[in-house]
Design a binder for these strands. Structure first.
Lengths: 349, 349
DNA sequence: TTGTACGCGTTATCAA
DNA sequence: TTGATAACGCGTACAA
């Protein structure tokens, strides 16, 4: 059935030791033997048994990615690119990528440390860190090599890769403020996500920096696909409706568009919109939305690199890598038109 | 470092054999021993070494997913849901999911059969089957358990999961024809993709069925993100521009919208649009697009199920599962307005 | 330069 | 009900 070193050894009339060394390119094998052994290995289509190898050198040669596929809206395109980034680095470095997609409530499944302790993987990239995430402590206690994607507000004693949500949102909101907007709504996700606090903080900072009053009434957190439309509709119905909106996710921004249209609000003339995370749905919207872009692929790639390093040098100091998002100007933002007037629809950028 | 059965055995004063059997819930261990052994295992946070287990029973307990992440537009949301579907079934069945994301040109990396022959995985779900895909033959020759997602036009002797691209497109185009359209453009992807032929065939069949002339001039294949805008612009510039468009991918449809706007064509009044694959960018477009929806998650889940079955019963007959896509009516399609008139913009659905 | 012998952690076989 | 032993396939001291 399976071809093993033994088969090759028999075939070439040498010992398994020599075969093993030849295939691993040790330099204490005669070139002649090496050549023959390799030829035979090729001919027999030999592939080393990964399990045996793992068992021998107690390394799985595999990275684990723990990702909450069903927690977010399942079609959150961000993750695909993140995965792609990790996969690229993995294939380049000759390690495999194991996907552990945790279902929403199903924390019981495989314990994360279990994956490592059972030598299924050598380390983990853990996504979607919540504030005060118990998984972090657990992994630290068990000395599981890991890199977090995202961080909880408090902890700073572990390696992570993250985007600077504070500055990303702050710049986005400042952009709106520079355009003259003062009543800027904040549409946010579940505050339990680690990034939620950062994004909201960025929003507040923008107001602080520019000395504008912060109105808590304009902050809507915990919005979901089902609750967003109603909340947005209500917001627009009010007398003192906002003149601009920051949306923490694509689907929130896309819910704003029809709601605005329904009330006869034209974008960007009557309402400016900025969204966090740039993707096809945001670019293809009408009008294309000004967005806070993250280096999706790079985030995944760096997470993988950091993890590999961490596995190799477990005692190396913690590395924390924060990427700056960039504001991509499109045509959903414009200067506040004076007194709700209808003529100042020029974009200043 | 790692806790093994030996540690447990020492601790409870029994043999490793008994420990192993207790942990695997064999019924020839005294309840008392079982309880003690389990307690100690828990206490020591024991996790069986996956490699050792694999080596012993020559099963990796892992499915491989071979997916072309960078080949398509990287943010093709479809794949994320497909992966989610597979991951769900895997976690439910207690097997792991190994992701092998092949880079565009990099066919050399790990040979697919190698993954199985090296016992890295027990079988493969292979995506993005091309016409006459060499990987299929290779896997068949080496008796690698696999399930394809997609099929090449010819082959029918392997297990696959697929969407009925022919009927999906045919119904979509017939919908347009029923609305009175005759000049319907076809915007397609690289014809080397297995599904391309099916989709184009669906397009042709719609014309055959309804007895309308088929105009090859209206067929544009091999469009990419970079080439699409020009091709579309040119198409609209012509005197005999189409009155409706079928787009084989989200980004193609999203490229149609601004091009139409630029020429003063209003959708759906002057131009109807149908797109293959339903997702957020399509739903959030203005207007929301009539789309051919695929059961993304189900496709992934079924692929995983089929593969598990195939691994367990390698000699069972081939299973080929074709899912019917469904046409989701939205507001990008409307009856052909007579003589380019501007008043008959009612939707008939 | 090559071969012998052992161990990685687990499970299965067989005997007690 | 339990235990000793072998085996899975590989890599590596150590000896030759």
């Amino acid at each position: 059935m399976s071809v093993t070193v033994k088969d090759i050894a028999r075939r070439v009339g040498l010992s398994v030791t020599t075969v093993s060394r030849a295939l691993n390119d040790h330099d204490d094998v005669s070139p002649a033997s090496k050549a023959r052994i390799r030829a035979v290995a090729e001919e027999l289509d030999y592939h080393p048994n990964a399990a045996a190898r793992s068992l021998q050198n107690s390394r799985a040669n595999t990275l684990g990615l723990v990702i909450p596929l069903s927690l977010h809206r399942s079609h959150d395109v961000f993750w695909l690119e993140f995965i792609g980034g990790m996969a690229g680095v993995c294939s380049q470095r000759g390690v495999d990528l194991l996907l552990s997609a945790t279902e929403a409530g199903d924390e019981t499944s495989t314990s994360l440390p279990g994956l490592v302790r059972g030598r299924r993987v050598d380390g983990l990239v853990v996504c979607d860190i919540r504030t005060n995430d118990p998984r972090i402590k657990q992994m630290q206690r068990l000395h599981v090599p890991f890199v977090a994607f995202g961080r909880d507000a408090a902890g700073v004693d572990y390696s992570y890769v993250d985007v600077d949500g504070v500055s990303g949102v702050r710049e986005a909101v400042l952009h709106l403020i520079y355009l003259g907007h003062q009543r800027i709504a904040y549409l946010g996700l579940d505050p339990r996500f680690g990034f939620s606090a950062f994004r909201l903080q960025g929003y507040r900072e923008a107001f602080e920096v520019s000395g504008l009053p912060f109105d808590p009434e304009l902050v809507h957190e915990g919005l979901t696909e089902t609750t967003a439309p109603a909340a947005i509709g209500e917001m627009f119905a009010r007398e003192d409706r906002p003149t601009a909106v920051f949306a923490a996710a694509d689907f929130l921004a896309l819910a704003v568009l029809p709601a605005a249209r329904a009330r006869g609000l034209s974008i960007p003339r009557d309402l400016s919109v900025v969204v966090f995370d740039d993707n096809l749905s945001v670019q293809g919207a009408d009008p294309p939305l000004t967005a806070v872009g993250q280096p999706n692929r790079t985030l995944g790639a760096e997470a993988a690199r950091l993890l590999l390093e961490r596995i190799e040098y477990p005692d190396a100091p913690v590395v924390q890598q924060i990427f700056e998002p960039s504001l991509v100007m499109r045509s959903s933002t414009a200067p506040l038109s004076d007194l709700g007037g209808k003529d100042s629809a020029e974009t200043v950028a």
